[in-house]
Write a protein that binds this DNA or RNA. Structure first.
Lengths: 145, 145
DNA sequence: TTGGATGCAAAAGTTTTGCACGGTT
DNA sequence: AACCGTGCAAAACTTTTGCATCCAA
């Protein structure tokens, strides 16, 4: 497989997390790394089959599980989708805006919740580690219709 | 079944949505109405079996589906839980704070995101209808350990 | 060489569905 | 009476697991 500049990041991450650099693992990471939308296991499975090599769906699930545990990949669930979604973890959390009509998912980098977390910690006594924010609406294209 | 004051709300909602007032549907709504935490289908199933009457799990699922479609109940999914959760829809959205350790879910009434939605609409071109915010952390009890 | 990675098949777990019967309006 | 709701069993669907084999370090 051709190793481009932008692939070094996840290859390094693989190595430093003690995981073997296998063909399947590598294509899986490449797909997620270059994808702006979270994908489900089956989508990843078909992409690897089409573009790279024959692979088994359980291999995809097993690799996703390992990569999630090592923190390289994040697992997501959205209401209305029975399948879990996965994305490359670019460090620094992100939020999502989902189109109710066409189901397109767009990523939002800015997070408005830092100060809110502090006030909520005081209010509830929780020690807050993370949060998940998803917005729902109609994307510009679907909104026209 | 004894009809108390606080049950009138969901009984009325049943009627005005054109759904039949059946024994199971009624106990299901009563359980969700009086519960502060979202419950999954199996938990609802066992509660009805214990407190009210024999019921089949598929009946629970079918009723939940109808009630979600009518907007009386909201369906939720949390990462790390393969089961969907359901709650009575009290109108006016709510947010959740989930304990990473004991999995307790607490509901937050205040929402800090009104202004943010407006700025995001301008930024993305989306027409935003709703959002979902979940906070994760350690509840006061688990935090002590 | 050795332990992890993979394919295959089967299992597990959640949710849905077909069909006959029963209950509400 | 008509239609919706229910129970039961089976199916569908996503995800996990056991086991034999293969491959990267």
């Amino acid at each position: 497989m051709d190793i481009k500049k932008d692939q070094k990041e996840y290859l390094g991450a693989l190595k430093s997390s003690g995981l073997k650099n296998t063909k399947h693992r590598c294509s899986l990471l490449e797909i997620l790394f270059n994808e702006s939308q979270p994908l489900n296991a089956e989508e990843i499975f078909f992409r690897i089959k089409e573009k790279t090599a024959e692979i088994n769906l359980s291999t995809v699930y097993r690799n996703l599980e390992v990569l999630v545990n090592k923190g390289l990949v994040t697992k997501l669930t959205f209401p209305g989708d029975s399948k879990s979604l996965y994305e490359y973890n670019k460090m620094g959390h992100r939020h999502y805006i989902v189109c109710i009509s066409c189901k397109k998912i767009m990523t939002i980098e800015h997070c408005p919740l830092q100060e809110y977390e502090l006030s909520l910690e005081k209010e509830t006594g929780f020690k807050i580690n993370a949060h998940k924010l998803v917005m729902f609406g109609y994307c510009p294209e679907c909104n026209k219709k």
